[in-house]
Write a protein that binds this DNA or RNA. Structure first.
Lengths: 333, 333
DNA sequence: CATAAAAATGTAAGCGCTTTCAATTTAATT
DNA sequence: AATTAAATTGAAAGCGCTTACATTTTTATG
């Protein structure tokens, strides 16, 4: 592989000049630029990124921490990030935190030890203080779906409450008034926000919401089934069921069907996230789209702007949209 | 950040000695090792991986090319690879090829330009000649689900034919004799292998297989629905349907249900791959497990052995197992 | 034209590590 | 104790690039 030295020889200029045309950061006369470019072409030269990194103390790589690599949700997020960063010639390093504080921390440290220029992270378990402390370090960190006041301009998030609201509003608009809710875990902020949206929509419609129509799962499919059972055991009836995510919606649908209820004719269901399998369910799941891919892309753009001097338009706040499919129909007595 | 130089000062030894204890590749007396280790601890020293790479011309990173980052199948594969490589402190760089020859090539070049020590790739479109040529280059490449004679010992693959055979055998064992098959695209080798397994199982059971019970899709869910329609339009009846992958199985199930057929009571269905959504389907899909996660892990182990001198046990060949769930039942007249 | 200012280019010192080869210390042997 | 072999250690030359600073060339100005 040709080195910058050979290029400089071939073009009859100095190392520094070649470096300048590579990096386009200092002015080089058109004539010499051409000579150099021709030489690079002739030699099939490609800069050694490692040497560039060492000399410039920029690794041109950004670390990304997700909970799981094999999840439709994080898949979309990774895809959004990778597309944007690769277009800019940056390298992306993914690591998985497996929803464990210890592993999340190790992953962050692994990423840092590889001299990432920035970190984009979506973590559940890492305490705020640690993030805080990290954000004061040399490497800028960007948060997805988590907002710390002290670093607001490096957080991108979605309005979960609005999502819960829109799901509920849609059920109400379709004539449902007895609407049950399977919420995510109470200690998760997003779960509580979604639930608040549900409550708000009901209140707004003048419907007293009834605590007995709310149960709490853990976002897993199994818990969706379990919660459904809890719900039907209660005296209170309902014609629509809103779930804190698509997994639980799937579990609830299965359980309901096993108990002989016809979806959507006997019961309407709405999920949340618009995970890729939502359309594989039967009936196809009406749900709230979580624009996680776009959010990932935005985080990437923020990194590109802040760290590499690009000028992308930035959006830090996203609103979830309703995706109408087949699991909810008009309420009929 | 402390450098190796400061460590050497603190320990009262030379740079070379510190380097030796870091890399554990040359003998250092116990006494000096201790001194150095203490110094590293005191200074919170961590080697600069970039400098290490430049000096050793090893980047300690391996590139991985998948078709999509947001796919359950590749998700599992990536997860298997990442787990194994990170345990070894190696960095993984993922790139997506999007099933396009051009992008696959660009991705490979991107990975190469980042000086990966090895490449693990799962590509569909890249022609054999290019892979061939690549494999003759400096950077070793490892193939998943594709076997080139010239580099057999760097390929890991699964017996697709056996998978098709086992699916079909299971249907036969459950009394089905009229078994339809929705195959993947004819130009894909794995699709044809799976189909061959189907044919072999039938032949072995003394059943003439009937070409009119075989239709070809493109592995997408939509094509599963379409193929199902084609199948029922034909005069030939069938009590079981085997699909070349889970997506098409899902499509077929949907279409069948829309036409009023009850699965599995009227029709049994088997998929292939055991994608994560297979258990979200209703009824839960009986399918053939594709151990893609393990295969990824194995590819990682091979890299670790060949490139970094580890000694992992290697398995290059995998057999797919049947996963019994609820979409196939005993045949009853 | 002479001169100063601006633009372009070159020189050379690192970036933090690995590794070859030589020098030194230690252990083994007679 | 002298000699030799083996085991440790150190010195120094890179790895391929960036960049501060110096130098040269070009352009502008009076």
């Amino acid at each position: 592989m040709a080195t910058i030295y050979e290029v400089s020889k071939a073009a009859g200029v100095s190392l520094a000049t070649v470096s300048r045309v590579i990096n386009k950061n200092a002015v080089v006369s058109a004539k010499t630029r051409e000579k150099v470019e021709q030489a690079m072409l002739d030699l099939g030269y490609r800069p050694n990124t490692i040497a560039q990194s060492l000399a410039s103390s920029k690794s041109n790589s950004v670390g990304v921490l997700v909970s799981e690599l094999d999840s439709p949700f994080f898949g979309e997020m990774m895809s959004g990030i990778e597309t944007e960063l690769r277009r800019a010639g940056k390298q992306v390093i993914f690591a998985a935190g497996h929803n464990t504080e210890k592993i999340e921390k190790e992953s962050i440290e692994f990423l840092l030890s590889r001299f990432c220029d920035a970190l984009i992270i979506h973590v559940e378990e890492t305490p705020e203080e640690y993030l805080q402390q990290l954000s004061e370090g040399k490497v800028p960190i960007y948060l997805i779906n988590r907002v710390l006041d002290s670093m607001k301009n490096r957080c991108v998030h979605m309005n979960n409450e609005l999502g819960g609201y829109r799901a509920t509003k849609f059920a109400l608009d379709n004539g449902h008034t007895q609407i049950a809710y399977i919420a995510g875990p109470q200690q998760k902020e997003d779960a509580m926000e979604r639930l608040r949206g549900y409550q708000q929509a009901l209140t707004e419609s003048g419907i007293d919401f009834d605590d007995s129509l709310i149960v709490y799962g853990d976002y897993s499919e199994q818990s969706g089934s379990d919660c459904y059972k809890q719900l039907v055991d209660k005296p209170k009836k309902f014609s629509a069921l809103i779930c804190g995510n698509d997994e639980m919606a799937s579990g609830a649908m299965k359980q309901a069907r096993d108990e002989g209820v016809d979806i959507p004719n006997d019961l309407s269901i709405i999920g949340f996230d618009n995970t890729s399998f939502a359309q594989y369910l039967y009936p196809q799941l009406t749900t709230i789209d979580n624009p996680i891919g776009q959010m990932g892309q935005m985080a990437a753009c923020m990194v590109l702007n802040d760290v590499y001097g690009h000028k992308h338009a930035i959006q830090r706040y996203f609103e979830p949209e309703l995706v109408k499919r087949k699991s909810l129909i008009q309420y009929t007595e």
